[in-house]
Computed example of a mutant assay.
Amino acid sequence: MKIAISGGGTGGHIYPALALIREIQKESAQNEFLYIGTKNGLESNLVPRENIPFKSIHITGFKRNLSFDNVKTVMRFLKGVRDSKRMLKEFKPDVVIGTGGYVCGPVVYAAAKLKIPTIIHEQNSVPGLTNKFLSRYVDKIAVCFKEAEDYFPSEKVVFTGNPRASEVQGKDGIRGRLSAGLKTNVPAVLIFGGSRGARPINEAVIKSLAELGEKPYQVLYVTGDVHFEDVKKEADLVGNPQNVIIKPFIHNMPEVLAGMDLVVSRAGATTLAEITSLGIPSILIPSPYVTNNHQEKNARSLSDNGAADMLLERDLNASAFIQSIDRIMLDKDIQKEMKKNALKIGVPDSADRLFKVMKQLTKKNNR
């Protein structure tokens, strides 16, 4: 099978695409891929590093206010469609899938106009502008949250989950702990705010360091590269608690996650897919700075089902932070219940589900 994939802008759009590709590669080395992204996006580094053929188009997103830049964006979209059609005609894919970001707009639209089977993958509980636009043209819409189904034509929607959930399965949590410098016989909490970190979470942790140092559990605190030096200076002032390990970034996150008893993080779709697949209790601090406040809605899908506690950023302070962690880490019954509820939500076979949708589409198209 020949598969064209497009997704860009943030890791939340790119990592599910890469996870899907890796899952498909397991089935057969004969499957071929073409990834279409933007030259300046994160995907231009991540995709070639995986030895996946990569081509780029030039496209920008729409401004939400009236702006002359939107006229330029329309012109770039039309050129992006022409460029995408040329690339797709050369590659001749059996199916095209968009995993999010504005680069998907011209790519998936071009595929639909060329009568190539098309799918969009919506990771969040509230879809973005690009996927809302594309939903009129694609054959299938794969969603990760039941809440997203209401935004799309019901006859096109299929619930698959996020392919990243499949990648964390079978990882060695003990090895993950050791790689991060954690003990294997002490309960562990992972605190992080995404690849770049989150200043409000960092501030709450800094103010809590001394108290965290007295707890019967250990903490792995990932600051993000931008904040690491400042956080380390603050940690030096309180004596660097031995049970708190501070790192700028974790490269083997699936392995580390597998060894955690609790995760404290933002509520990005990829993170939630991973932790529910593993059944890890969580405290979610959704970012209020994202489109349509979708992270809070993502978080509520877990907290309303007893799989997570939600702590809004406006309520975040050292006291609330410590109390939230203690409530879970010091009560095994709560941990057990949250784990059970998280596993009910998780979709560990999500990559396989999405691949099956792709195969069904191509079979239908070849009849």
Rank of each mutant, 00 (worst) to 15 (best):
H251G: 08
H251K: 10
D83M: 03
K356C: 10
T223M: 00
R136H: 11
V238K: 01
L42I: 05
P216Y: 01
S277H: 08
K63W: 03
D352E: 13
I285P: 10
V107P: 09
N365V: 01
N292R: 14
Y289P: 07
E203I: 02
I3S: 01
G306S: 15
Y289D: 11
A307I: 01
H121R: 03
E234N: 15
K113S: 09
G80Q: 11
F355T: 08
S319C: 11
Q242P: 00
T99V: 01
I280W: 00
N51C: 02
D236C: 02
A258I: 04
G100K: 08
Q30F: 05
L316R: 06
G259E: 02
F249G: 02
S350D: 00
K359D: 14
N162H: 07
G346R: 12
P254M: 11
L134K: 00
H13N: 11
P163K: 04
F68E: 03
L209K: 08
R177I: 12
L134A: 00
L46V: 05
G9L: 12
A320K: 07
Q25R: 04
V168P: 07
G98Q: 00
G194E: 06
V96I: 12
P106C: 00
P153Y: 08
K113I: 04
V189P: 07
A4Q: 13
L220H: 06
L134S: 01
A148I: 14
K26D: 10
K39W: 03
P48L: 06
N292C: 13
F321V: 00
N305V: 03
D172G: 05
D139I: 05
N292M: 12
A4H: 12
S282P: 14
V143G: 14
A342S: 06
D94T: 05
E147A: 11
H13Q: 07
Q25S: 05
K171Y: 07
H251T: 07
T276P: 10
L237M: 02
Q30S: 08
L78Q: 04
F321Q: 01
S56N: 08
A269G: 10
I250C: 03
T130Y: 07
Q360V: 12
K359H: 12
L316A: 06
A19H: 08
E27T: 03
L129V: 13
N366R: 15
I14N: 09
F33C: 00
R82F: 13
P348N: 11
F152L: 02
N45F: 07
E214Q: 12
A142Q: 00
A308M: 13
E313I: 14
D83C: 06
S84G: 11
I345Q: 03
G181M: 05
L278V: 10
D236W: 01
K146L: 15
T99P: 02
S287R: 15
V103T: 04
R76Y: 05
Q169K: 05
A235G: 04
K140P: 06
A142K: 00
S84K: 08
K344C: 04
E313R: 15
R136P: 02
Y289I: 08
L284A: 14
L312N: 15
L34T: 07
G239A: 04
V108M: 07
